[in-house]
């Protein structure tokens, strides 16, 4: 059974339709990449999966259950976790408080201490800055808090919107390395990423979106070496 299945979703903002019948499937324990140029509908897709945006038509199934009408906080409580674009930290709260908020739901709550140690092991720099307000951190550190906060929720599915946006190449490499480690531990991941080469390198399976539709899908390795796709959609 797929960990998450999205079937024929249409959605948008107000009168403006962005998604035109998108379907995708996440296999458990795999890293699925969702790539495409700016404005292709990737973030809209994530927001619809999370319920921040209402699906006009279609169905979102999470672990065999239809969650299309569930409010987003309930989806989050169930373990469908989004690390949003632009990090969206609690800037006036400390790093540690941000991580605690990640474990707000009843399900991850009992393992909060253990998971926090896990996050600090993954991002040692956060341990040094645990009492600092999140708003005062550098961009890279803020992204670590955002990913760490997502992990505190013990995600059944971890969705990350633009992991590398605005980060230095060095930090991007570090974060992708952390992502690979998570995947090897069995974490199911959906990664939306502008850095297509990197996303394909860690990804198992990939979807290429354009103009609100899935234009191509397949094993990440195959897609990356397909000349037609490289030229048309990936710009690499």
């Amino acid at each position: 059974m797929a960990a998450l299945e999205v079937r024929d979703i249409t959605s948008g903002y107000g009168e403006v339709q962005i998604l035109w019948g998108v379907s995708l499937k996440l296999e458990p324990g795999k890293l699925t990449a969702l790539v495409g140029s700016n404005g292709s509908g990737k973030t809209t897709m994530l927001r619809t999966i999370m319920g921040q945006l209402r699906a006009w038509q279609g169905q979102v199934t999470f672990q065999g259950q239809d969650i299309t009408r569930l409010p987003s906080y309930q989806r989050a409580s169930e373990g469908l976790v989004l690390v949003p674009e632009g990090r969206q930290l609690f800037t006036d709260m400390t790093v540690q408080e941000n991580l605690e908020m990640g474990a707000f739901a009843p399900r991850p709550q009992p393992q909060m201490r253990r998971n926090m140690e896990r996050v600090f092991a993954l991002f040692p720099r956060l341990a040094e800055r645990r009492s600092q307000k999140a708003g005062t951190l550098s961009g890279g550190e803020q992204q670590m808090v955002a990913v760490g906060r997502g992990l505190m929720a013990e995600p059944r599915i971890l969705m990350i919107d633009e992991l590398s946006l605005g980060l230095s190449p060095r930090l991007t490499l570090d974060l992708f390395e952390s992502l690979r480690r998570l995947k090897n531990e069995g974490q199911t991941i959906l990664l939306v990423e502008q850095n297509v080469a990197m996303a394909m390198a860690v990804g198992d399976y990939a979807y290429v979106m354009a103009e609100g539709r899935v234009k191509m899908e397949g094993h990440a390795r195959d897609l990356l070496h397909n000349e037609e796709i490289r030229a048309a959609y990936l710009g690499v």
């Binding site: 999370m50 921040q52 409010p71 987003s72 906080y73 309930q74 989050a76 409580s77 976790v81 989004l82 949003p84 969206q88 930290l89 609690f90 800037t91 006036d92 709260m93 408080e97 605690e100 908020m101 990640g102 707000f104 739901a105 906060r149 929720a153």
Partner: peptide, 18 residues
Amino acid sequence: KAIRAVSNNRGAAELMGI
């Protein structure tokens, strides 16, 4: 803390299951 989180960023708080 949940009150402060919602006060700080309501959208993000929802994403945390609050």
